[in-house]
Amino acid sequence: MSIVINNLNYTYSPRTNFSKVALKDITFEIKEGEFFGIIGHTGSGKSTLIQHFNALTPVQSGELIVAGIDLSRPKTSKIDFKKLRATVGMVFQYPEYQLFDATVLGDVSFGPKNLGLEKDEILERAKQAIGLVGLDYESVKDKSPFELSGGQKRRVAIAGVIAMKPQILVLDEPTAGLDPHGKREILDLILTLKESVSKTVIMISHDMDEIARLSDRVAVLADGQLQYLLPPSQLFEKSDSLEKMGLDIPTIARVVKHLNEMGKNVPHDIFTVEHAVEYFSKTIKNKNQ
């Protein structure tokens, strides 16, 4: 269930004078079971890239194999869209804006229904998905999604994707526009989902703290090109070049950087609060001994 990308290129409006190159020679692999972060400035090609993963954007040139399905040769072998979209679940930015059904249950059932499942199976999956995203099935199932709060709406939208039981979950800025509490809840939810439903998670985010905390590896895109593909510990050492691309580093990484500039000797691979707390309490203990 991996994603293999080979020399992927994409240009918007090709052969016109408003043509815009969105992806340039992207090559990498996302492994099964990975939490994969994608960061980059607005317009760097992140969204275009992830839309390739379930064939919302057709491959123009290059090779793309998602969970064993070759998306690069749509002409020779017709892509099984149903299978592909059941395998790759896509949570877009502000997913609550795609809710449409009169009831929460109806909306969450939309995906499984499209897969052509049996009625019982659809209901079972919807029930499970609503429970997984932390909503009370009995009390929300007959409510209109439009009368829920913002955070709840987003959960319903995510449940709608989860109900398809995707093995690969792709999220485009899942925490955008939420308050810190809501952000934390959604991130915890994503971790839960990774444990229970989708083994592989791909997440786009502008929040480096989130990326640092969750990702196994991070891809950095700039101007449609892959700049770095590293684990967070190595990536955030390159704060200067990240800044040049208009990207931030995690808050803790910035603190560590300042400390080192002041002459303290703190290891560079500290970039999450948990790690920092552990390190500093250890050093303080050592000093006191």
Binding site: L56, R85, V88, M90, F92, P95, Q98, F100, F110
Partner: peptide, 28 residues
């Protein structure tokens, strides 16, 4: 965006008879 979101939830806008196609527009 909405079309893409619903497509990724398995919505199909290109097949079926005219009524099915009209009904498929509701989620958009």
């Amino acid at each position: 965006k909405i079309i893409k979101a619903q497509k990724s939830r398995g919505a199909n806008f290109d097949s079926g008879n005219i009524f099915k196609r009209a009904a498929a527009l509701i989620p958009i």
